[in-house]
């Protein structure tokens, strides 16, 4: 019997983005799933779902307790690459409302180090509707910046104009040579943008699912699938439902 060779060490992120305009504001989509606002020197990450595995362990399902570390590691790479003045965590940063309380000391220290020397905003989400405990940073339900509104859950219809949100964990599926490929993605119609989930232990919801009704007009949006070192753009008409 044999084991696996240890995984490769993570490569640093390259701070090159796919630049585009959302409701007139310049933003950069990064293949890590983070959003970069160059004018504001701000990095936005959605749906970290920290302490998700311990949330399951409480119910007797002993998922690997490494997701928090892995997500923070990934966040660190993104922060190292961009060195932002401000970080916005766009809600569901913790998997449940006690998640920040359960956060082991080592990760708390790591997170605090990441926060040093920059502004940090915890936007509330449905999983974490309250401010995290024993952590730095401000808490807000919404943030306005560069003419854009940053909130966790996208608002349906015209209220969502110039909005950047998370919550839905967008994923896109395409087919090529009979084989289907499904990846997390950014979804946008140019007027609003939904970010993929940044946490490592998070699934995705197909952007053609019914849950998206009211967010984008049917077939009138694009998905940017996350790839290795680049994004793959598709218009909605080229995507497949699950």
């Amino acid at each position: 019997m044999r084991g696996f060779a240890a995984a490769k060490k993570a490569r640093p992120f390259v701070p090159v983005c796919h630049d585009m305009s959302i409701a007139g504001a310049l933003v950069g989509l990064h293949d890590s799933g983070a959003l970069w606002l160059p004018d504001e020197h701000t990095l936005v990450v959605a749906d970290l779902h920290l302490e998700k595995s311990s949330s399951f362990a409480q119910r007797g399902l002993m998922l690997p307790p490494y997701d928090t570390a892995a997500t923070l590691e990934k966040l660190k790479l993104a922060i190292d690459a961009f060195d932002p003045h401000r970080v916005i965590a766009l809600g569901d940063s913790f998997h449940d409302r006690h998640g920040s309380d359960r956060l082991p000391a080592a990760y708390r220290a790591m997170l605090t180090t990441l926060q040093l020397g920059r502004e940090w905003i915890w936007v509330t989400g449905n999983h974490d509707p309250i401010a995290p405990l024993k952590l730095c940073g401000e808490t807000a339900d919404e943030v306005r910046l560069s003419g854009l509104t940053f909130r966790h859950e996208p608002k349906p219809g015209p209220e969502g104009f110039a909005e950047v949100a998370g919550h839905l964990h967008p994923a896109g599926r395409v087919r090529r040579y009979g084989r289907s490929i499904r990846r997390p993605c950014f979804a946008t119609d140019g007027e609003r943008l939904v970010l993929p989930a940044f946490g490592v232990l998070t699934g995705g919801l197909n952007v053609l699912d019914e849950a998206w009704a009211g967010i984008f007009a049917e077939k009138r949006f694009s998905a940017f699938l996350l790839g290795e070192g680049r994004l793959y753009p598709f218009t909605a008409s080229k995507l497949l439902a699950d």
Binding site: G3, F4, A5, A6, A7, L63, P64, Y66, D67, A69, A70, V200, L201, T202, G203
Partner: peptide, 13 residues
């Protein structure tokens, strides 16, 4: 996802 996390953090699990 669990497989990915486990493989990179505890390859001898």
């Amino acid at each position: 996802l669990i497989y990915d996390v486990l493989r990179s953090h505890e390859p001898d699990h």
